[in-house]
Simulated scan of single mutants.
Amino acid sequence: MASFLETLAKKFSLFSSDIGIDLGTATVLVYVKGKGVVLNEPSVVAVDKVSGKILSVGAEAQKMLGRTPGNIIAIRPLREGVISDYEMTERMIKEFIRKVQGFRLFKPNVVICVPSIITEVEERAVIDAGTQAGAKRVFLIEEPVAAAIGAGIDIAKPNGNMVVDIGGGTTDVAVISLGGIVESTSIKIAGDKFDEAIVKYVRRKHNALIGERTAEQIKKTIGCVYPRTEEVSMEVKGRCLMTGLPRTFSVNSTEVLDALEEVSASIVEAIHWVIERTPPELTGDISTNGIVMTGGGSLIWGFDKLVASKTGIPTHIADEAISCVAYGTGNCLENLSGMQDGTMNLSRQRQMMQ
């Protein structure tokens, strides 16, 4: 009877593949075992306030941000790297799992990334959300560890490597050796703060109001944290604070550099803080190996140049920086026996990765 059920399940693809989730403040990436990264969508949920029904999730919901009527709200259920709306996060994860798996007879094991500094309450919230969303078992892995693995670093060796993962809500800085984190910090300053800084700057300098999506577009198009060799500019549409009417004006890269200076300085300060507390032997390794930057925030023009100039350590941005954490979770899916329910046992990471 058991063999018959297995044959039937295989025939109709009812077995679930284990999945890894990079549960980001701005974006969710899902890695399916044997298939790679199959989903990359914004962490946004659109809900009907009257019925409580989810109208859309991901890219479709993002289009509704700032454009919904009174009975519909488009929200981001994660803020600064942690769950701010538990129910919406659970429903969002459930919808993404359904998108990548469809109907399956058996529940999947799920590996979810979390910031390197997370409280037990925040950790439990992630585990419960994953379980309620349909996971058989939930495992957690620190984002810098997953990012290092996804960037192709062999973390099992007795060799120091520094990873700077700049996401949407948090920036994680960690020194990794022998499969574990030696020194780390996690600050709630990342991509969202860059967007906020641009909104504030435009309001102060141009006396105009722009939305988060427009600020993000400015950041991606002409944003920089290190002086460009040639200045670039773009046309921006906003609302004039004097007249209340629509207005089009020009913003250049030098202005954006000024706007982002304070936020980028905070991230550089966090990197300094970790280096100062790293054992001398590992500091020497980092000087040789350089600093690896991952995450969407690292793609702002000149970030690697800024870090290198401020630390004196060679710095480079990982290939496929946005997907590094997701690929790291995918690597862990191959070694679930080396992980404990609910969390990763850091003391066993070295054996797990060998």
Rank of each mutant, 00 (worst) to 15 (best):
G191F: 10
Y31M: 13
K219G: 09
D195V: 02
Q62C: 09
T343R: 14
M293S: 03
L140F: 07
Y201I: 02
F103R: 14
A26E: 02
S43R: 00
T329A: 12
K35T: 04
L5Y: 14
V325K: 01
N331W: 05
Q132K: 15
C332Y: 00
L241W: 00
P246C: 08
V236P: 04
S298F: 04
A197V: 01
G211S: 13
A147V: 09
I118G: 02
N345M: 12
S13D: 15
V28C: 12
V47Y: 06
V110K: 00
R67T: 13
E95A: 15
L5V: 15
H316L: 10
G328E: 04
A26V: 03
S17G: 04
I317H: 01
N207P: 07
Q101T: 15
Q349S: 14
I117E: 12
K99H: 11
L105C: 07
G238W: 03
I322D: 02
N161K: 11
G150K: 00
E334P: 05
E90S: 11
G81E: 02
M353H: 14
P115H: 13
V175Q: 06
E276M: 04
V164K: 02
L39D: 09
G24A: 05
A270I: 05
F96A: 04
D285C: 05
L65A: 00
H206I: 08
I187M: 11
L39N: 08
R348D: 14
L14Y: 13
P42H: 10
I75Y: 03
Q354T: 13
K107G: 07
D285G: 05
E235V: 08
L257D: 08
Q351P: 04
L8K: 13
I118H: 03
D154N: 14
A133M: 07
G330H: 11
T229H: 10
P115A: 09
V32S: 06
T119L: 09
M234H: 05
S56A: 15
A146Q: 01
G152R: 00
Y31N: 10
E230W: 04
N109E: 09
A265S: 15
L39T: 04
F12R: 04
T89W: 11
D154P: 05
V44M: 04
P69G: 10
L282H: 09
V38H: 08
I118Y: 03
K35Y: 09
F96V: 11
E255F: 10
T131W: 08
S3Y: 09
I317T: 06
F106W: 07
I176R: 03
G20L: 02
S298T: 06
S184V: 05
M1Q: 09
P77F: 03
A46F: 08
R213M: 15
I117M: 08
H272F: 14
E255H: 06
I73Y: 01
V163E: 00
H206L: 12
S43E: 08
N161T: 12
V199G: 01
E261W: 01
P314D: 05
Q217T: 04
F194V: 01
I75K: 11
I97Q: 08
A125K: 05
R213S: 15
F106R: 06
E230V: 12
Y226Q: 08
G160H: 11
F4R: 13
R98T: 13
I141N: 06
S16R: 00
V182C: 13
G102Y: 12
K33N: 14
V82P: 05
I286W: 08
G180C: 06
G223F: 06
K53F: 09
T283I: 14
R79V: 06
L29E: 02
M234S: 06
N335T: 10
